[in-house]
C-alpha cells in the first residue's frame, strides 16, 4: 500500500515536471522577442507611444499564465514608464498581446536621446500547473537611444 503511494507521488512528480516545463518553454519561445528592442522605430510625437506586440502560443499540454511587463527605467531604479498585461493561454491557443508605453515628449527627449543611461526592462513571467511551477526572465537592455 505504502509502495503504491510512493509510486503514485513519483509518477505525479515526473509527469508534472515534464508537462510543466514543456509548457513553460513552449510559451517562452514564442513570447521572447527576437532581438529585443531592435527594429522598433520610435516616432517623436507628443506623447510618444512605444508599441510592443507579441503573439505567444501555448504548444504545451497545460494551461499557462503569462505576465509581460515592459518598463523604461533610468538611473537603474527610476521607472519612467511601465505597462503590464496578464493573459491565460490554454493548450494549443495563441493570444495576441499588445502593450503601449506612453511617455510625454519632453521626458522622451530626455531619456531616449543620445547619451541617455535609460534601459528597457522586459519581464516575462510564466506560471503553470496551478501556479506550482514558474519561470521568470527579466531582460534589461541598455542603449535605448534610437
Amino acid at each position: 500500500m505504502l509502495g503504491i503511494g510512493i509510486m503514485i507521488i513519483q509518477l505525479v512528480s515526473v509527469i508534472g515536471f515534464t508537462a510543466g516545463f514543456h509548457t513553460i518553454f513552449e510559451v517562452y519561445n514564442t513570447a521572447i522577442p527576437g532581438g529585443a528592442g531592435e527594429g522598433t522605430q520610435i516616432e517623436m510625437t507628443d506623447p510618444v507611444v512605444i508599441p510592443y506586440s507579441i503573439s505567444p502560443r501555448n504548444n504545451g499540454y497545460l494551461e499557462a499564465e503569462l505576465t509581460v511587463t515592459l518598463s523604461l527605467v533610468a538611473e537603474g531604479e527610476m521607472v519612467i514608464a511601465t505597462e503590464s498585461m496578464e493573459v491565460t493561454i490554454s493548450p494549443g491557443e495563441q493570444v495576441p498581446l499588445d502593450l503601449e508605453l506612453t511617455i510625454p515628449l519632453s521626458t522622451a527627449q530626455m531619456y531616449l536621446g543620445e547619451g541617455s543611461n535609460a534601459e528597457w526592462v522586459l519581464e516575462l513571467r510564466i506560471t503553470t500547473l496551478y501556479d506550482l511551477v514558474s519561470f521568470s526572465n527579466i531582460i534589461t537592455m541598455s542603449g535605448v537611444a534610437q
Partner: peptide, 16 residues
C-alpha cells in the same frame, strides 16, 4: 547589451 535574470521555481518537486 543585455542582462538576463532568470528564476525557475521548482519547489513543489522538492516537497513531493
Amino acid at each position: 547589451n543585455a542582462t538576463n535574470y532568470i528564476v525557475m521555481n521548482m519547489r513543489v518537486l522538492i516537497y513531493l
